[in-house]
Amino acid sequence: MEQVQRLRTALAEGDEDTSTDLARALVEQGADLPAVIAELALEMEDVGRRFERMDIFLPEVLFSADAMKAAMAVFGPELAKGAARERKGTVVVGTARGDMHQIGKDLVALFLGIAGYEVVDMGADVDPLEFIHRAEETKAEIIGISSLMTTTMPGATEVIDILKDKGLRDRVKIIVGGAPTSQEWADKIGADGWAEDSSGAVDVVKELTATESGRA
């Protein structure tokens, strides 16, 4: 237990090397890895909350996420020997066509990953049809589109229009966000969710995937 606590501290401090060493030690000791990972998830949730309050900033979150990845790189092969990990869902994210501003999308991708979702990050300036193709390929439940300029907001509308034209609108949920966007605009274009920031986006995705599970 002490080592798990030390591993949590390594995550909080963004110490990749210590994280790797402690993860290896836990594997060698035959620790209950799903229980350890649950503890680490709690630590990362706390990192997210501290970032939301701006007690810490993005670099600290990135360093913590790297430390988490380092531990998971050690645990991964061991976990593969056991039962499959719970699948929370897949989200395709990117910025709307013509939009080069990535920070909002990057934060959403980072925190969705921390929350345990599979994230397909398509980067910036994504063609509307490419969003849909990638969602089909990856069987994603959700497409997230970020716009930082009013001139790129129509890119999100295009994705929804094409989904309707292809008869796929009920197969995938659309969430939108970005500085000039609003809930009112999201409702107007027929999106399924809107969030003001990255933590809000994770909440929306949780809500939408829970709804999906309920339907299934």
Partner: peptide, 12 residues
């Protein structure tokens, strides 16, 4: 501006 001749201005 965000509209041109009544239609939303879209990048590119």
């Amino acid at each position: 501006l965000e509209e041109f001749m009544g239609r939303p201005i879209q990048s590119r």
